[in-house]
C-alpha cells in the first residue's frame, strides 16, 4: 500500500523518508567546527554499548506479548545484540515500557528505573506508554511514561508490530552511537551533586527510605 503524504507534525517529511537526521546533525556539528573532542576510545565504547543493549524483562500488558514475539524465532532480536533479557534491573541496559502504566505501578516503575545501572535507556512502547492511549481518560492511568521517566525512543502502535519494535530498537542503537554529542538523558546533574545526594541518602532517616523494609525486592 502506498503511503499518501502522511502529515507528521513533529518531524519533517524529508526526515521521515530517509530518517537519518541523527547522523546528519552530527555531520553538521563536525562541519561547523563545534568544539567536540572525538576520542577514538569514546567511539569504541559507544559502538560496544550500542551493539550490546540488554533489555529488562518488563511487561505490563499487550505490548509485552509482542515484545516476547520480537525475541522469539521469527523476529529474533538476538541478531542485533539485544540477546540477553535480564530479569534483574541491575544488569539491564534499557527498559522497554511495554504496556499501560497505572498510578499504582508508577512508583514501582520509577524504582525499577532507579535500580538500573548507568548508562540506561527507556523505550516507551505502544499508545499507553506514550500517552495513555485508549485509557487516557481513566482515573488510574498515567498519561505517558515520560511524565515519570526520561524516554529515549517512542514506538507507536497498539500494540506495535514486532517490525516496528525492531525499528525502534535500532533507533535506540543509533542514538547510543552518537551519545557523546547529545549527552545522555540521565546525566542531568553533575557528579558532585550526585555524590552529595548519595551521601544524604545513606545517612538520612527519611520515612520514605524506611519503607524499603517492607516493600523492597520489586525485582
Amino acid at each position: 500500500m502506498e503511503v499518501r503524504n502522511p502529515r507528521i507534525k513533529s518531524m519533517k517529511y524529508e526526515d521521515f523518508n530517509d530518517n537519518e537526521y541523527i547522523e546528519s546533525m552530527v555531520r553538521e556539528l563536525r562541519e561547523n567546527g563545534t568544539n567536540v573532542v572525538v576520542g577514538c576510545l569514546d567511539e569504541v565504547i559507544e559502538w560496544g554499548r550500542s551493539n550490546s543493549l540488554w533489555p529488562l524483562t518488563f511487561a505490563t500488558s499487550c505490548c509485552g506479548i509482542e515484545f516476547m514475539a520480537v525475541g522469539a524465532a521469527r523476529y529474533d532480536f538476538a541478531r542485533f545484540g539485544f540477546e540477553v533479557a535480564r530479569a534483574s534491573p541491575r544488569q539491564a541496559d534499557f527498559i522497554m515500557v511495554a504496556g499501560t502504566i497505572t498510578h499504582k505501578m508508577a512508583p514501582v516503575l520509577k524504582r525499577l528505573y532507579d535500580q538500573m545501572a548507568d548508562p540506561k535507556y527507556v523505550i516507551a512502547t505502544g499508545g499507553c506508554a506514550i500517552s495513555g492511549g485508549p485509557f487516557k481518560k481513566s482515573y488510574h492511568v498515567v498519561d505517558g511514561v515520560d511524565k515519570i521517566l526520561p524516554v529515549d525512543v517512542y514506538i507507536p502502535g497498539c500494540p506495535p508490530r514486532p517490525e516496528a519494535m525492531l525499528y525502534g530498537l535500532m533507533q535506540l542503537q543509533r542514538k547510543v552511537k552518537v551519545q557523546r554529542f547529545f549527552g545522555d538523558v540521565n546525566r542531568q546533574i553533575d557528579r558532585k551533586e550526585c555524590e552529595e545526594l548519595l551521601r544524604r541518602d545513606l545517612t538520612a532517616e527519611k520515612n520514605e527510605l524506611n519503607v524499603e523494609k517492607d516493600a523492597n525486592h520489586e525485582q
Binding site: 565504547i45 550500542s50 550490546s52 538476538a78 542485533f80 545484540g81 545501572a117
Partner: peptide, 29 residues
Amino acid sequence: CRLGPMRVGPWGTVQVFCDVIKMLTKEII
C-alpha cells in the same frame, strides 16, 4: 530455530566484544 547474533561482524563474531566493552563501562552499583 533462530539465527543468533548476526549483525556485528561476520556472523556476529564480534558480538561478545561489544558485550565486554559495555560491561566494562557500566556503572557498578
